[in-house]
Design a protein around this nucleic acid. Structure first.
Length: 486
RNA sequence: GGCGGGGUAGCCAAGUGGUAAGGCCGGGCUCUGCAAAAGCCCUAUGCGUGGGUUCAAUUCCCACCCCCGCCUCCA
């Protein structure tokens, strides 16, 4: 189902410019995204990045590509080891919990699960083989401490992605304690020798017991699943340096190939204009947002559409309330046309075509979702007006399918009519919640229907209030009462 | 210091060398028993500040003032 014919243009961090995207073996697109380090609950900043990857993936499909999406779990590093130890749990058991929570949050945010989600600890042999290869080729060496380091001096292009030259890597204030064992400050660990604080965590290797450095896992797993050279590698902007720079160095030196064609990076989230930090108490998880009465769809809409992915996104509760209002408006629009008979929709209509063309054009321009959504709201208003007037509509069902393939909001619940013989006679109402209202609400609804037929407005109003108190909203339409979850 | 990203209405935000998308909030109106929803109208003579180029700049150039990120923990 290719709907957008326009060439897709993306900003490549490598060239710092917007380029037409052309995969190596179109329509296949091999896509690798750096995943979370699973030592704690991920926060909304993390999810902005994963939502960006989700957007990219959905847009690729919309433009006729077939992405194969791989995302890793970093389940071994200083933090996971320390946190597992603090929790008195084996590393694997500890990280399992956070992977489960993360996947639950992905589902809440309606993020499509990556095709593969490899864990670092399941691929230690691959990493060891890669490190051996780098040593063999003279790009890595074993330090006095038994750790293996990558020699950045052996890779002339080092710094190409981050646009840092070696002068920027001179010894500074933050010299690592293991400095004396490395040839150069910029050299980074491929393999870390076992230390007492690692406890039971460690794997046998040609250099003794130890564990992989952070960067090597992504090189090993991405090349293993996607090939030595693949199309897109993406992640948060903070990963540009050193993580992705180091991945490039390792991978290119090992294979002599270009590794990745297009690098994409998503900017960070601020909260109330400030960087999230535990000391400020502004690090929010998906669960925190749900606890305030918002849904995953509200948060998704905010993080996905509030600004361009290369722009810093300032999260505020006020902004989330605005996102909820916008989603509610979309839901009302959906509920409205979904109840219409098929005869109201034209098979093809110029306004529908024009809208889709502009929607595609916006997304083709480096995933300009804000602009695309702006077009969508124009279209929403135009079709609402057509519904007011009762004129023929564009093919809304198929157009929405396309729009929602990107927005990922879904269509909430089935539109059902609740009428006798339901639990309560006269409780007829259209339900827009996707869940059956409790008997108490059905009863109130029935009484209200009766009051309304008597034109007892006072009773009708107090029953509406009672229904509100049960967490439901009732509206009156020419077709009768309409019930929805508040 | 090096590299990079920003400053557009009450809030969020797109955008263009030709006179400011969209969302939220607010005000008015239509419809309605009421309410809600929906629609219509209004809400930046203005796009950080000062210069310059141009017939024309928010959009290009120069200078300046703020804010933020990265520079081997970090989505």
């Amino acid at each position: 189902m290719t709907h957008c014919q326009t060439p897709l243009r993306l900003f490549n961090t490598l060239s710092r410019s917007v380029e037409e995207f052309r995969p190596m073996a179109s329509p296949k697109v091999r896509l690798y995204a750096c995943g979370p380090t699973v030592y704690g609950r991920a926060h909304i900043g993390n999810f902005r990045t994963f939502l960006f990857v989700d957007l990219l993936r959905r847009v690729l499909v919309l433009f006729g590509f077939e992405p194969e999406h791989v995302m890793n779990y970093t389940d071994v590093d200083d933090k996971t080891i320390a946190a597992a130890k603090a929790a008195s749990l084996p590393l694997r058991e500890f990280t399992n919990q956070y992977i489960a929570l993360f996947e639950e949050d992905l589902k809440t945010l309606r993020i499509l699960p990556p095709d593969r989600r490899p864990r670092a600890t399941d691929h230690i042999e691959l990493m060891i083989a890669l490190i051996e290869d780098l040593i063999r080729k003279g790009h890595a060496y074993v330090g006095e401490d038994g750790s293996v380091y990558f020699r950045i001096a052996s890779f002339p292009d080092y710094g190409k992605l981050a646009h840092l030259d070696r002068r920027g890597l001179q010894p500074g204030a933050r010299i690592a304690q293991d400095e004396y064992v490395k040839e150069s400050v910029g050299d980074f660990a491929l393999w870390k020798a076992w230390k007492a604080e690692d406890g039971g965590v460690g794997w046998a290797s040609p250099w003794g017991k130890g564990r992989p450095g952070w960067h090597i896992e992504c090189s090993a797993m991405s090349m293993h699943y996607l090939g030595q050279e693949f199309d897109i590698h993406c992640g948060g902007a903070d990963l540009i340096f050193p993580h992705h720079e180091n991945e490039i160095a390792q991978s290119c030196c090992a294979t002599g190939k270009a590794f990745v064609r297009t690098w994409l990076h998503c900017s960070h989230v601020l909260v109330d204009g400030e960087k999230m930090s535990k000391s400020l108490g502004n690090v929010y998880s998906v669960a925190d947002v749900l606890a305030k009465g918002y849904t995953g769809r509200h948060l998704r809409f905010l993080l996905l559409t509030a600004s361009h992915y290369r722009q810093t996104l300032n999260f505020t509760w006020e902004g989330l309330a605005a996102a909820k209002a916008a989603v509610d408006r979309i839901d009302d629009w959906l509920a409205r046309w979904r109840r219409l008979p098929p005869t109201r929709f034209a098979a093809s209509a110029p306004e529908g075509e024009a809208f889709l063309a502009s929607f595609c054009a916006s997304l083709a321009d480096d995933l300009n979702i804000s602009d695309a959504v702006g077009r969508f709201f124009d279209f929403l208003r135009a079709t609402n007006r057509a519904m007011d007037l009762g004129t023929l509509l564009p093919d809304l069902p198929s157009i929405w399918e396309i729009v929602d393939s990107v927005l990922g909001l879904g269509t909430v619940g089935p539109i059902e009519a609740l009428r006798p013989p339901s639990a309560h006679p006269n409780a007829e109402a259209v339900i827009l919640a996707g869940e059956t209202p409790p008997l108490r609400v059905q009863e109130l609804l029935a009484r209200r229907a009766a009051a309304r037929s008597r034109r007892d407005w006072k009773e009708s109003d107090s029953l509406r209030k009672a229904i509100e108190e049960q967490g439901w909203t009732v509206r009156d339409t020419p077709e009768g009462q309409e019930l929805r979850r508040r």
